[in-house]
Design a protein around this nucleic acid. Structure first.
Length: 554
RNA sequence: AGGCCGAUGGUGUAAUGGUAACACUACUGGUUUUGGUCCAGUCAUUUGGGGUUCGAAUCCCUAUCGGCCUGCCA
């Protein structure tokens, strides 16, 4: 609807637009998001998801979800469900859900075809021998002694591989390309391996499984994918991707690579996330400190914020590391206009209003969201004994501190102006209680004779509900925990990434629904944890703090 | 070391042979019953060298730096 700060068009979209303009594939655009169901989605996947689904939408095309399930060793139905769930939460719906395993029979036929045409052969070399024969980055490889075996023999062997006549690893099917090719992927890559393992979808129907390289491009082709977008590390695979398509004479999907997303103060690779989970550094794949979709969701990051973030980091071929501040800004931007305001005190200091009647309780009105008049108001109880934030009081301070000090005045948000007349201390000299007087003529109005600049949040001590809060900090203390290859990244895990405490909340917070995020005024955004909250007893996660230009300077 | 890819403020991107711009960050001020939001402003950029051109971030050469590649993972 509303419109157009013309967004910069990334190189992928430019290419797609050019293809459409040239009438390629009759102007049809089709993409796909191709996860392997062996783990949970993270922020880097979100970038790929947004790219693929949004391009399909922008060019009035289709985007499928396809599971690249060619390695039963690590894959499971559980991950299939979780991935579907995460993509929907992010805000996308696929045209079709597909599985590479649905193409196994077709892939097998194609493999036979390549054997017959002399483009593939069965190899008996062992794993170690094959590595030896492959050569190295600087030295050419050499031909396997089985490379020239007659096609008929390879075909027979391949069929017997499928029939289960050989042990795991005893033989493989290889493409016959060029053992001296400078691109290692072209040195007769493996197309099929023998692996007796139960597959989450095809069960025990197969004991041979196709490799990624012999599956991915053909799957794209079968689905009529026009633009196959993947990350940079597959650049070297593109010649092979094209080789299979050409040899088979099938629909020419085109692969284009872009840089994956990296973030400061975190890690995103599946292997490293797994290390954090299995090493007990975090509580699970949905730990709110993790950049997994489930973690971020639980922490309270809105899906819209993640989509916006992906749009601002853009799509290029430059390997880069985005500042988490960019992500946090996207989160605040959405939450500022959508989150309901509430008051809660994290480090309480008691305030007694000396001129307020002992039993009098009134209700003041709180604005739910100054950014959104439609959000309405709520009632907040106000009584003689209150709780304020310890850091909002100083016995003495200079004029730049415009919160409460002894003999000073401050506005209680949504209520009255109070003056601190005296304080009580314990034996250690710690301030334990503030005795204040209320200016009764300041509810919803400012005094005419003076200006009171400070405003602090508060809750009524007798009405406050206590809720556990979990204050998260960055998971790593190092900006690029992976940068030093000599040091294991877990060395940089921030020991203080989780701080637990109690929030003294205004009563309305008891009714917050799990999974919703609100702003604790002057403190930050907090999400009622979806796992730990019980009806009437929320547990809060700090989604992100408010920008705090005061704290930074002090 | 061989192949492929890449290099624009602190970070992420734009400019596609014609005035280097946007967002974030940082900093200054203003508004404000959130030291939030909002508004105004400041600092700061084309990796080095050569070439082509009236004119180069953009094209060419070269150096340097960075990423990926030697799984029967994807």
């Amino acid at each position: 609807m509303s419109e157009s700060k013309e967004k910069p068009i990334d190189f992928v979209r430019q290419m797609v637009a050019a293809d459409v303009a040239a009438g390629k594939h009759d102007g049809r655009v089709q993409t796909r998001f191709p996860p392997e169901p062996n783990g949970y989605l993270q922020i880097g996947h979100a970038k790929a998801i947004c790219l693929n689904f949004e391009i399909a939408r922008e060019f009035k095309g289709l985007c499928n979800l396809r599971f690249d399930d060619t390695n039963p060793e690590k894959e499971s139905e559980e991950f299939v469900q979780a991935i579907e769930d995460d993509i929907r939460w992010l805000g996308f719906e696929w045209a079709k859900v597909c599985f590479a395993s649905d193409y196994f029979e077709q892939l097998f036929d194609w493999a036979c075809q390549l054997i017959e045409s002399g483009d593939a052969y069965v190899d008996d070399l062992s794993f170690d021998e094959m590595r030896e024969y492959r050569g190295s980055i600087t030295a050419p490889g050499k031909a396997s002694p089985y490379r020239e075996r007659p096609a008929a023999e390879s075909l027979d062997l391949f069929k017997r591989m499928r029939a289960g006549e050989f042990a795991d690893g005893e033989k493989v099917l290889r493409a016959k390309i060029d053992m001296a090719h400078p691109n290692m992927n072209m040195r007769d890559p493996v197309m099929y391996r023998i692996k007796r393992m139960h597959h989450h979808r095809v069960g025990d129907a197969w004991c041979i499984y196709p490799s990624y390289d012999f599956t991915h491009g053909q799957s794209d082709s079968l689905e009529q994918v026009t633009h196959s977008l993947c990350s940079l590390e597959f650049e070297d695979h593109r010649p092979l991707y094209d080789w299979f398509i050409e040899k088979l004479g099938i629909f020419p999907s085109k692969q284009t690579e872009f840089a994956r997303l990296n973030l400061t103060y975190t890690v995103v690779s599946k292997r490293k996330l797994r290390t954090l989970v299995e090493g007990g550094y975090v509580s699970g794949w949905d730990d709110p400190r993790l950049p997994t979709l489930r973690g971020m969701r639980r922490r309270g990051y809105p899906a819209e914020a993640i989509r916006n973030f992906c749009a601002t980091v853009g799509v290029t071929k430059v390997p880069s590391t985005s500042d988490v501040a960019l992500l946090e800004h996207a989160v605040r931007e959405v939450l500022n206009r959508t989150a309901s305001r509430r008051m809660a005190v994290l480090n309480p200091l008691e305030v007694e209003l000396t001129n307020w009647p002992e039993d009098e309780v009134i209700e003041v009105e709180g604005v739910n969201n100054p950014e959104d008049p439609d959000a309405g108001t709520r009632k907040i109880p106000f009584a003689k004994r209150l709780l304020i934030e310890q850091e909002d009081f100083r016995e003495e301070a200079n004029r730049k501190f415009f919160r409460l000090k002894l003999d000073g005045e401050v506005r209680l948000r949504g209520a009255y102006i109070i003056k601190c007349d005296s304080i009580e201390k314990d034996a250690d000299g710690k301030v334990t209680k503030l005795l204040c007087s209320v200016d009764l003529d300041t509810l919803n109005k400012n005094p005419e004779d003076r200006k009171v600049k400070g405003v602090i949040h508060w809750v009524s001590a007798a009405h406050a509900i206590e809720a556990p809060v979990r204050l998260f900090d960055r998971l790593f203390s190092e900006e690029k925990p992976e940068a030093d290859k000599a040091v294991e990244f877990t060395e940089f895990v921030n020991p203080d990434s989780l701080e637990e405490g109690i929030a003294y909340c205004e009563p309305s917070l008891a009714g917050i629904e799990a999974g919703t995020t609100c702003q604790f005024e002057r403190v930050g955004y907090f999400c009622a944890d979806s796992e730990l909250s019980k009806p009437g007893q929320p547990v809060f996660n700090r989604t992100v703090g408010l920008r705090d230009t005061w704290a930074k300077k002090n």
